[in-house]
């Protein structure tokens, strides 16, 4: 509906309005500088569209589907007198919607990037491993997945295991890392092959985050020599890990194949748990 309208009638006027807008930019630049950030890109003068007519042209996403009302554009937007009047009110909201949501990550300090990634890891960890209301919808839990967390947890577990091993340290690390990293990939493929619906990297991310309890268990076991404590602690962390991974993996496949998808996850965690106990 809007398509055809957009197609036939306004193509010329709207392209015309583009030109108009550029003209406006050139003409009215001195006028609009005052309320704006001086460095903002040329399109920041969208606020021209505070007059409702141009919205179809360069819209914030929510306005995208509105049928355009093109004809008066040129007449209205050409008159530069309108611009400075309405600008100060509208500019902040539009720029917040249109440009504020995507901060430029290329020019920010490195420390900000690191902090952002760390906070994302922590929030993902909370979503996956700790009990909270979001557990009801496992698919949403890791929509903002990342692979830094899994990488840290896998490497950390491998390092802890190889530190606690008394012989063949490097081989222990190699086996642990291979089992965990390849295991995560293979488990995800397993779900996909069983006909499940899962996002590959999201599942990798989740399986890595679920290692966190085992990480803690391994860390504690490294500093204790009591076999009894290990034998009690590791099953608890094991159950915690499996419980964290359970809702996601079981929701991904059809109910009749739940056991087939969950068994390999269980196998991997049990193997890792056994490694933690056995290596002293």
């Amino acid at each position: 509906m809007a398509m055809s309208h957009n197609d036939s009638v306004p193509l010329h006027p709207s392209s015309q309005s583009d030109i108009d807008e550029i003209e406006n930019l050139i003409n009215a630049a001195p006028a609009t500088v005052l309320p704006a950030r001086p460095q903002s890109p040329p399109r920041a003068s969208i606020p021209v569209s505070s007059s409702p007519f141009i919205q179809s042209n360069i819209p914030p996403p929510s306005f995208h589907n509105k049928p355009p009302i093109p004809p008066p554009i040129s007449s209205v937007s050409v008159s530069p007198a309108v611009l400075p009047v309405t600008d100060p009110n509208v500019r902040p909201t539009v720029s917040a919607e249109g440009f504020g949501s995507a901060p430029n990550t290329l020019t920010e300090p490195v420390w900000d990037t690191v902090k952002r990634d760390l906070s994302r890891i922590i929030s993902n960890l909370k979503l996956v491993v700790f009990p909270n209301p979001f557990r009801e919808d496992p698919g949403k839990a890791l929509r903002d997945w990342d692979l830094w967390g899994p990488f840290f947890f896998i490497v950390f577990l491998g390092l802890v295991l190889s530190w606690s091993a008394s012989v063949r340290k490097s081989e222990v690390f190699a086996v642990a890392f291979a089992v965990l990293a390849a295991g995560a990939i293979i488990l995800t493929l397993n779900v996909l092959l069983l006909g499940g619906h899962i996002i590959f990297f999201q599942s990798l991310s989740l399986l890595g985050y679920c290692l966190f309890p085992l990480d803690i268990g391994a860390l504690v076991c490294m500093f204790t020599s009591s076999v009894l404590l290990k034998v009690i602690l590791v099953p608890i962390t094991l159950a915690w890990s499996s419980w964290a991974a359970y809702p996601f993996m079981s929701a991904a496949v059809s109910p009749r194949r739940k056991a087939l998808a969950l068994y390999p996850v269980f196998l991997m965690y049990v193997s890792v748990g056994f490694l933690i106990i056995a290596i002293d």
């Binding site: 398509m3 197609d7 249109g98």
Partner: peptide
Amino acid sequence: MEGGGYGALSSNQFLGSVPAV
């Protein structure tokens, strides 16, 4: 069809229109 293509093309170039992309 063309309208959609035109919309996608134009919105592609602006930072603000992430959902469409």
